[in-house]
C-alpha cells in the first residue's frame, strides 16, 4: 500500500478576477522508503504541494490519503496530530524557536505528544547525537552556524519517528560544502529506511534521489526514476 496517495489534488487561490492554480490536478503515489525530489522553477507549486503533503495546508479539490487515512475534512487539531505523529518538516529558513536551545527545540514536538521531561530530554539527546550535534545542545539558534541550525531542524523532524521526512529547499540557505554534508545525512537516513521528500532547484541535489518529479505551473510534467540510485 502506498504511503501517500494523491488523487486529482488541486490548490486554487481566487485573487479577485484571477484564479491562481498553485497546484493543479495532481495524481501521485509515494511508497514507503522512497526518496523523492520535486524540482521546478520558482512559482511552479513545489512548496504548495509539500504543504499539502505535510498537512500544513489543505487542498481545494481532490483526495489525499496518508498512511491509509483520509486526510480530507479533518479539523485543525486532527491535522496537528498527524503533523506530530507522521510528518517531519524541514524548512529552508530552519524555523527554529529563537529563544530555545538546540536541545529544547528538538524536545518541543514531544511536548505535544505528551511525553515527560526526562524521556523528552533522553530522546532529543539521542537524536542530536545522531545528527552530529551532541555537544551543541545548550546553544541558542543564533549561536549556531546555518548548517548546524539545519541539523537541529532535522533532529527536530526525526525525534518523533515520522513516517515521512519533508524538506522544502533544505539547503537553500547553505553553502556548497554544508549542502554536501546535509545531503549525505539524508542519504544515511534513507538507507536506514526513512521515506524522504525534498523540494529543490538544484539538479545536483535531485541526483541523490531515486525519483524525480518536475513541476510546472502546478502540474507534474515529468516523473522519472533515477536508475543509478536504485
Amino acid at each position: 500500500m502506498a504511503l501517500i496517495e494523491l488523487t486529482s489534488v488541486s490548490k486554487h487561490y481566487e485573487m479577485g478576477q484571477h484564479l491562481i492554480k498553485a497546484v493543479d490536478n495532481i495524481d501521485l503515489s509515494i511508497e514507503p522508503n522512497e526518496y523523492m525530489v520535486f524540482i521546478g522553477s520558482s512559482g511552479s507549486g513545489k512548496s504548495t504541494i509539500m504543504n499539502i503533503i505535510g498537512c500544513l495546508d489543505t487542498p481545494t479539490h481532490g483526495r489525499y490519503v496518508l498512511n491509509g487515512r483520509n486526510v480530507n475534512g479533518l479539523d485543525q487539531n486532527e491535522l496537528a496530530d498527524i503533523r506530530n505523529q507522521e510528518i517531519g518538516f524541514i524548512f529552508q529558513s530552519f524555523n527554529l524557536l529563537p529563544r530555545a536551545t538546540a536541545l529544547k527545540n528538538v524536545m518541543q514536538p514531544l511536548i505535544y505528544r505528551g511525553i515527560g521531561l526526562a524521556d523528552r530530554r533522553a530522546e532529543a539527546e539521542r537524536v542530536l547525537e545522531r545528527v552530529g550535534l551532541a555537544d551543541r545542545g545548550d546553544h541558542l539558534p543564533n549561536q549556531l552556524s546555518g548548517g548546524q541550525c539545519q541539523r537541529v531542524a532535522i533532529a527536530r523532524a526525526l525525534v518523533t519517528n515520522p513516517s515521512i521526512l519533508l524538506a522544502d529547499e533544505p539547503t537553500g540557505n547553505l553553502d556548497s560544502q554544508t549542502t554536501v554534508e546535509i545531503m549525505a545525512l539524508f542519504d544515511e537516513l534513507h538507507d536506514e529506511g526513512q521515506t524522504i521528500i525534498v523540494v529543490t532547484h538544484e539538479p545536483d541535489i535531485a541526483a541523490h534521489s531515486e525519483r524525480v518529479a518536475r513541476l510546472r505551473d502546478g502540474r507534474i510534467v515529468e516523473d522519472y526514476a533515477n536508475e543509478h540510485n536504485r
Partner: peptide
C-alpha cells in the same frame, strides 16, 4: 506569530 506557526507545524494543537 512565526514561533506560533512553527509550534503548530510540529504538532501543537489549539489548546496547547
Amino acid at each position: 506569530t512565526r514561533e506560533i506557526g512553527i509550534c503548530k507545524a510540529i504538532g501543537a494543537k489549539r489548546h496547547h
